[in-house]
Structures are given as structure tokens and as C-alpha cells.
């Protein structure tokens, strides 16, 4: 297990590259989502084919998640962007990178691109959105509902999840409840600083949005294309929020296509 100490905390990082030892054509950074997620959602899905396509693939566990350190506080969006910045500095990745984020991970990836436009070659948002003025209260509301149910009757809530969503999801939910109890994450995320529409529109690199056809977030696709100067969105029918793990081949294919086009355009 590779641990990188950013000076603030220890982050679990995994890196995959071309297996034949050839020099990678570009670097892609994969950022996972909140609470039940970890870098494993990439490690066993799109990371191996990305490495086989010649990319240097970097993935890491967000603070509090997976095998990374779990400080009690510091869970605003800016803290997460600071961690990503510190990680890439430690890894001495100085050139532009292709950023991919799933759910909240996409909000981090987009935030990084907004903060450092010169370091973002492209951004792929999977079931995700920029940190707009409506994003923070919406995510805050979802967090509050989930945590309220788990806090008041965790056993009943977990039993319901086991029956309706399976044993695996129930175990993940238990881990998520622990993370929410032990840290300031539920308070910090809704209190995050958000971007104005002008700041969102200032991200000029190619942006791809991938959404599940049955997800509420798919409704964002037209807005995203209108606001961003270089944006294409794809809706994958028959999927909800877990489109990354359920339709990894389709999602990965669209992202690789974006990265390859952006690489050609940058030459």
C-alpha cells in the first residue's frame, strides 16, 4: 500500500501505468465520491483499461475514506482541493492532468480546475456537478436526511438497507455512518465555499458530463452545456447514481475519447 504524507495527513494512493513499461502519454487523476466510496471504485473498473491505453493513472482515498487518514475536522470542499493539490505536488506531477471525478469527487476535480486552470487538461464529471450556489444546500439536505435516519435508529435503517439494497451496501452504510459520527464532515460540506456562475464558466478546458438516465442529476446536463464553453454531456440509459461501477465500460470509453481528443488538440 502506497502512503503519501502531504504534511497535513497521510493519503492512500495507487498508481497504474502502461504494463509494457512505455512512457505514459498523459496523467489522469481519479477522484472518488463521499461516504461509502473509495479508490476501489476506480481500481477495479476504469483504471486498468486506462493504464492499458497508455495513461499514468493516479487514484487516492479522500481524507476520512478508505485507507487514508481520518482527521476529526477539515472536510470542506476547499480542504479536499487542498489535499489534491498537496498530493500532486508530493508526487511531483507538475504538468496539466486530466481530472475525473465520481459524484462529490467530480465537484473536487472541477474545483481544482477552477483554482488552477493551467493544470487541468480536461475534466470528466460522472454523476456530478460543479459547486454551484444550489449544490451546497442540496448535498447538505441529502446528508442530513441520511444521517438523521442512521442516527435515530441505525439498526432499523441498516436492516432496511440489507433487505432492499443487499448485504454489501448495508456494510458500506455502516462505515459511512461511522465516518459521519467521528468527523465534522456533515457540517463542513454544506458550509463549503461555492463558485459563482462566472467562476464556473471560466473553466475553459474540455469538460465531459456522464449521467445515469434514471438519476436526477441527468437534468443538469443542458445547464452544464450552456454554462461551460467546451462541454459535452452523455446520458447512459437504465442507470442511476452508480453508473460508474455498473456501466464501467461505457463510462470509461467516453472519458478515454475525451482525453485522447484533448491530447491531440494540445499538440
Amino acid at each position: 500500500m502506497a502512503i503519501v504524507d502531504t504534511g497535513q495527513l497521510r493519503l492512500h494512493v495507487q498508481r497504474m501505468g502502461p504494463r509494457d513499461g512505455s512512457a505514459p502519454t498523459a496523467t489522469v487523476v481519479l477522484v472518488h465520491g463521499l461516504l461509502t466510496d473509495s479508490l476501489a471504485s476506480y481500481y477495479f473498473t476504469i483504471a486498468p483499461p486506462f493504464a492499458a491505453a497508455g495513461l499514468d493513472v493516479i487514484m487516492y482515498d479522500l481524507r476520512g475514506h478508505g485507507r487514508s487518514g481520518r482527521p476529526e475536522s477539515g472536510y470542506t470542499l476547499d480542504d479536499n482541493i487542498d489535499d489534491l493539490e498537496a498530493l500532486l505536488d508530493r508526487l511531483e506531477v507538475t504538468g496539466p492532468v486530466h481530472l475525473v471525478g465520481n459524484s462529490y469527487g467530480g465537484t473536487i476535480a472541477f474545483g481544482y480546475a477552477a483554482r488552477h486552470p493551467e493544470r487541468a487538461a480536461s475534466v470528466s464529471l460522472i454523476e456530478s456537478e460543479p459547486a454551484s450556489a444550489t449544490w451546497a444546500p442540496k448535498l447538505g439536505g441529502i446528508l442530513q436526511r441520511v444521517l438523521h435516519q442512521l442516527a435515530h435508529n441505525e439498526d432499523d435503517a441498516l436492516a432496511w438497507i440489507t433487505v432492499h439494497r443487499g448485504h454489501n451496501t448495508a456494510r458500506l452504510a455502516k462505515g459511512a455512518a461511522r465516518l459521519a459520527r467521528e468527523t465534522s464532515l456533515p457540517q463542513d460540506i454544506p458550509a463549503s465555499r461555492v463558485l459563482t456562475e462566472d467562476q464556473i464558466a471560466a473553466v475553459r478546458c474540455p469538460v465531459l458530463g456522464v449521467y445515469g438516465g434514471d438519476s436526477d442529476l441527468a437534468l443538469l446536463a443542458p445547464w452544464l452545456e450552456k454554462v461551460l464553453p467546451d462541454c459535452r454531456t452523455v446520458v447512459v440509459p437504465g442507470h442511476e447514481h452508480s453508473v460508474l461501477v455498473e456501466a464501467a465500460g461505457v463510462v470509461g470509453g467516453h472519458i478515454l475519447e475525451l482525453i485522447e481528443k484533448a491530447q491531440v488538440a494540445a499538440r
Binding site: 497504474m16 477495479f44 486498468p48 485507507r67
Partner: peptide
């Protein structure tokens, strides 16, 4: 009761043991 992040750890242990020809990530992907 292993979580998916434990399987990432296992992938590293398998590579340490057998070398790069055993690629657990590709197998599961």
C-alpha cells in the same frame, strides 16, 4: 466480509507474491 478497499490491498499482496503477471485489478475489471 471484505470491503472493496481490502481487495485493493489484496491486489498489492498478490503482486508482491507472484509478480506482475498476476494482475488482480485487470481480472476483476
Amino acid at each position: 466480509e471484505l470491503e472493496s478497499i481490502d481487495l485493493v490491498t489484496l491486489a498489492g499482496l498478490l503482486e508482491e507474491k507472484y509478480g506482475r503477471q498476476v494482475n488482480f485489478a485487470e481480472f476483476l475489471a
